[in-house]
Design a protein around this nucleic acid. Structure first.
Length: 246
DNA sequence: GCGACAG
DNA sequence: ATCTTGTCGC
């Protein structure tokens, strides 16, 4: 039912910042630019696997610095079932978005959200990034660190295609399944990383735009908003456990 | 029946 | 998702 509300093309008011240092024509003041990009992740306790830390960070795309962070410790009893990640992780992440929105003025409420998990690259074409995007009514991009095998797509075939295209290491290949449907893209985000990341449309954005933005935010293999959410989430959970055992 | 299976 | 261990490179 949520999938009926999914939008898989660009649907936002802002413009992409010009990353090319060419002639920086003054953007008219009234044109909204993309500046605040959110990243979300959930980490889990090793002692008690039902204890989780949901994390929301917001980065300034101009310098990739974190301008906002928030954490929430919760217990999650919904089991992890491949293909149903959203039912486990979406509630806490939505809560964190709500919390930021309610803050007075909330100048850092993200214009775009990057999600640790797939968008339409999913057995039913509706992964965590889509789920969050629709419920929060926010443009989202799905980032997978492993391939979810769908429509005949295999890791070995992706590797094959990636190596055949032995061009600029910073390039990507489109993930077209046996049916001919385009599910996303595989990208080697860094020269050093052989292992690609898997980009797919979450909500209210095209694959083309999603790839451009992912490239703009990749300092390392994993785009910075997700990487920061991941690092800080783990750190927060460990510190909390240390404090609880004292 | 067997293998595949985001986080 | 979690954990360990070792190695490479700046």
């Amino acid at each position: 039912m949520l999938r009926r509300r999914l939008v898989t093309e660009d649907d936002f008011a802002w413009k992409l910042p010009k990353t090319t240092s060419s002639e920086r024509e003054e953007e008219p003041e009234e044109v909204e630019m993309l500046r605040y990009v959110g990243g979300v992740d959930v980490s889990f306790s090793k002692e008690d696997p039902s204890v989780a830390c949901g994390t929301l960070v917001v980065l300034d795309i101009q310098n990739l610095q974190v301008v906002y962070e928030d954490f929430a410790i919760v217990t999650i009893d919904v089991p992890y079932v491949p293909g149903f990640l959203a039912f486990r992780e979406a509630p806490i992440l939505l809560e964190l978005l709500q919390r930021l929105k309610k803050k007075d003025a909330s100048p850092f409420y993200p214009q775009l959200l990057m999600v640790d998990g797939n968008g339409i690259l999913h057995p039913r074409g509706f992964g965590l990034a889509c789920h969050l995007g629709v419920l929060a009514d926010l443009p989202t991009i799905g980032i997978g660190k492993n391939l979810h095998h769908v429509d005949g797509l295999t890791y070995s075939r992706v590797r094959q295609l990636l190596e055949a295209k032995e061009n600029s290491t910073r390039d990507f290949i489109t993930l077209t399944g046996c049916s001919g449907h385009v599910w996303g893209a595989a990208m080697r985000s860094t020269l050093a990383s052989l292992k690609p990341i898997f980009i797919s449309v979450g909500h209210r954005i095209s694959l083309f735009t999603a790839i451009i933005i992912v490239k703009m935010t990749c300092k390392y293999r994993v785009p910075e908003p997700i990487r920061q959410a991941d690092i800080r989430s783990r750190e927060y959970l460990q510190k909390r456990q240390k404090g609880a055992s004292e």
